[in-house]
Structures are given as structure tokens and as C-alpha cells.
């Protein structure tokens, strides 16, 4: 049972090691997160197979192929989902693929438009011709079912309310069979809806998923089954992807902080256990 604060004061150093004030822990974490942002730490990074698979899947799309990028995330998970969005868009535009971006989240729609506009400028992408933003779309299930059958009918207007029908980027796109890949960048379990409602409708469709790190383990079974072609796992995945597309973005810069935070957690667990073992040995 959880102990009530203040009811059992630690006696000696070994007891104290087991009950460090949480405020001390928080200050330590704050320091190890902030420090590397000012003093960059660059360490060698190995690309995980899940990230590599996503990269390869994008590489295998023929030039001029059509990719839908869904950005179901909001400000809360910006630290992880923003670098993921930027990394995947950089790759898609670098490969000169046609890109359609939209979001099931209102904030995600705004964020992804800002990111896509910036990346599009870098790669000379023209809005309406090379890429389009379909804006915020509520009720995911209905949109997904609808886009399987009729993409222009599902996204009749872009985020500014302009008709998409005559945009060059929409030419030749009728239904899901004309789409080469879908990449979902999300902070939720929306990948299950894509798998259940869309992915199987086009056997050649590649579905990539970019979840927050905490969500990644639960998606592994779907990568094994081939329903997800590759996964970009949180900020670490984004940093690996940035490395693959030869760019240094937010994720690469943040890896120093993440590394140190992990080390801090492990050290604290060790410290707590040292106190615990010594106390137990004394008592026995």
C-alpha cells in the first residue's frame, strides 16, 4: 500500500536512499533534460529494424506515387510527433512523391499544415500541384470507410475550403487502390481503425505508423503480420529517420536529453536498491 507522506521518517542513510524526496528527483530530471540542449551530446545511433522498414517502404514507392499522411496528434505530444511528421514529410518530398496531408485532430491539422508548408518550401513543392492539405476531419471511422471507396468525394475541399476536384495533385486519384501508402502519425491507437477499415482494401497499400514511444510496443504484432510496414517509434525513431534522410532536426537534438534522462532513471533505481539491499541484510 502507498505510504502516507510524513508518517514514516527515514532513519539512516540506507533508509534515506530508498526515500529520496520526489522534489529532488524532479530537479535532477529537469537538469539532465535542459543541460544537453545547451551542451549538445552526439552519440552513435543504431537504426532499429522497425524504422528501417518504414524507410525502405517509402523508398520502394515509384516516383510520382501517392501518399496520404494523417496527423492525429495535438500539442500535448508535440515533442515526439512533430519531429516524426517533419522527418516523414522530408523523405516523401525528397522522393518527389505526391502528398496529401490531413488530420483527425484540430490541433494536428494546424501543426501539420505549418510543418508541411515549411518542408514544401525547402523542396520546391507547389501547393495544389505536388501536395495538398485536406484539413481537419472529424469522425475517423466514417472518413476511413468513405475514402476506401471515393477519395475526391471524401475530401471535396482542402483546409481553406477550396475545391480539390481540379487540383493537379488529385488527378487520377479515385479510391484507395490509387494510393501507394498511408502514414499515420498519432498519439492514440487509431492504427487499429486504419488496419480494420482501410489497409486490407488495397493489398499493395503500405501502411506506416509513427506512434509515441509508449505506444510502440503494442503495435509490434501488426508489423509481424505485415499490416504495418514499419514503425517510427517516438522521438528515438524520429532521430533515426532524420539520420536516414540526412538531416539534423528536433529529434536528433533531443536525443542527448533522452539519453541522460534514461541514465538518471537507472541510477536512481540502483541507488534505491542499494539502500533496500543493505537495509534488508541488516534486518536479516
Amino acid at each position: 500500500m502507498a505510504t502516507t507522506p510524513g508518517t514514516s521518517a527515514p532513519r539512516d542513510i540506507w533508509d534515506r536512499l530508498q526515500a529520496i524526496d520526489r522534489r529532488v528527483l524532479y530537479v535532477l530530471l529537469l537538469v539532465v533534460i535542459i543541460l544537453p540542449l545547451f551542451v549538445p551530446i552526439r552519440l552513435p545511433m543504431v537504426t532499429m529494424p522497425s524504422t528501417q522498414k518504414l524507410y525502405q517502404a517509402v523508398e520502394s514507392i515509384p516516383e510520382g506515387g501517392y501518399v496520404i499522411v494523417s496527423t492525429t496528434w495535438s500539442g500535448g505530444t508535440r515533442a515526439e510527433n512533430m519531429p516524426q511528421t517533419e522527418a516523414i514529410l522530408r523523405h516523401l518530398m525528397k522522393r518527389r512523391l505526391r502528398v496529401a496531408v490531413f488530420s483527425f485532430d484540430q490541433q494536428g491539422s494546424q501543426f501539420s499544415y505549418n510543418i508541411a508548408s515549411r518542408v514544401a518550401r525547402d523542396f520546391g513543392y507547389e501547393y495544389g500541384k505536388d501536395w495538398v492539405h485536406w484539413g481537419f476531419r472529424p469522425v475517423a471511422g466514417v472518413v476511413m470507410k468513405s475514402l476506401v471507396r471515393d477519395i475526391p468525394g471524401t475530401f471535396t475541399t482542402d483546409r481553406d475550403g477550396k475545391p480539390t476536384k481540379d487540383m493537379p495533385v488529385m488527378q487520377g486519384i479515385k479510391d484507395i487502390k490509387d494510393v501507394d501508402a498511408i502514414v499515420e502519425i498519432a498519439a492514440s491507437g487509431i492504427y487499429m481503425d486504419w488496419i480494420g477499415l482501410v489497409v486490407g482494401a488495397n493489398p499493395k497499400l503500405k501502411f506506416g505508423f509513427c506512434p509515441t514511444a509508449v505506444m510502440a510496443p503494442e503495435t509490434y504484432p501488426y508489423m509481424d503480420s505485415g499490416q504495418i510496414v514499419g514503425i517510427m517509434e517516438g522521438m528515438r525513431g524520429a532521430a533515426e529517420y532524420e539520420q536516414l534522410v540526412n538531416t539534423v532536426g528536433l529529434a536528433t537534438k533531443g536525443m542527448g536529453s533522452i539519453s541522460l534522462a534514461h541514465v538518471l532513471i537507472m541510477l536512481l533505481i540502483i541507488v534505491g536498491n542499494v539502500g533496500y539491499i543493505v537495509t534488508r541484510a541488516r534486518r536479516s
Binding site: M1, A2, T3, T4, P5, T7, R22, G76, T77, A187, G189, T212, V214, M215, P217, E218
Partner: peptide, 25 residues
């Protein structure tokens, strides 16, 4: 993601806590 915010805040005030969810993460 809010699960830990609830659980850890509950722990801070010394509450006895029972939880269950279908979300394995």
C-alpha cells in the same frame, strides 16, 4: 497518457489505488 498523472498524484496523497484498463500500454 494521463494514467500516470492520476496514479502518481494519488500516490502522493497516500491513497490506496485500484486500476484496470484495456489499454495494455
Amino acid at each position: 497518457a494521463e494514467s500516470l498523472i492520476f496514479a502518481e498524484t494519488g500516490n502522493m496523497v497516500g491513497a490506496i489505488q485500484v486500476a484496470g484498463t484495456v489499454h495494455t500500454t
